[in-house]
Design a protein around this nucleic acid. Structure first.
Lengths: 109, 109
DNA sequence: GACATGTGCAACAAAAGAGTTGCAGATCAT
DNA sequence: ATGATCTGCAACTCTTTTGTTGCACATGTC
């Protein structure tokens, strides 16, 4: 795996590695497209904090934004998700082989 | 999704959200089980830094350790990987199917 | 026992992350 | 044009993360 791709993948995971952002992702998944103000409504944290989180998600290319009048609507972009999925698949599917390797080390012959 | 599960999931993603740790995961996947000293060999960062990264991975239950003589061997634990995979599947395949899939995981049969 | 090797603990510094507040600018309705 | 919203920028804390170094303890080898 190239270093650049690895860095990008780490960025995707890091973006998802926060409960607030994870919640944002699920809300965007359910609602389709929302503004930062709408996302901040009724939340414990400020709109600006939400905006920063959205920017993190966007930097990881998990989210895109689109201007609509005076609002800015954020929505999910599943493209990078697939790369992350592929990585986790690799771990899961490689797991059996890893176990087999361990077995041969522990129980030689 | 319960808040606790969400927190735990965020922890898994956060643990993977670092290029150094991602590299450790791939090395452990390839090699099976290695000590912190072995993992630090030839790396730019110190053994102690590696140990800290391994502790982060272990806190997220992506890694387990086992004492073997004077060495401590670290290896992958795929259990939490599946939860993360399920979440990414949810994003990719869409919310409705994702909910159904999660239900089958939580209420098997 | 003496020595090499591997681990564990703790204190420290630098950097990044998360959140706040205040205010200015843009946009829409009346 | 006025007022109500919504967004954007910047400065400022506070906390967490990342990494280092130094030293002590444990374990295997000779």
């Amino acid at each position: 795996m190239s270093n650049k791709a690895e860095q990008e993948l780490a960025g995707v995971f890091a973006a998802l590695g926060d409960a607030t952002r994870l919640a944002l992702v699920t809300r965007l998944l359910a609602a389709g497209a929302l503004s930062a103000t709408a996302l901040a409504e009724g939340q414990a944290i400020s709109r600006q904090a939400i905006v920063k989180h959205l920017q993190v998600l966007e930097a990881a290319r998990l989210v895109v934004h689109e201007r609509q009048g005076r609002e800015v609507l954020y929505s999910l972009d599943a493209q990078q998700v697939d790369a992350a999925r592929a990585f986790l698949d690799a771990i899961s599917t490689g797991w059996d082989r890893a176990l087999a390797r361990l077995r041969t080390l522990v129980e030689p012959d």
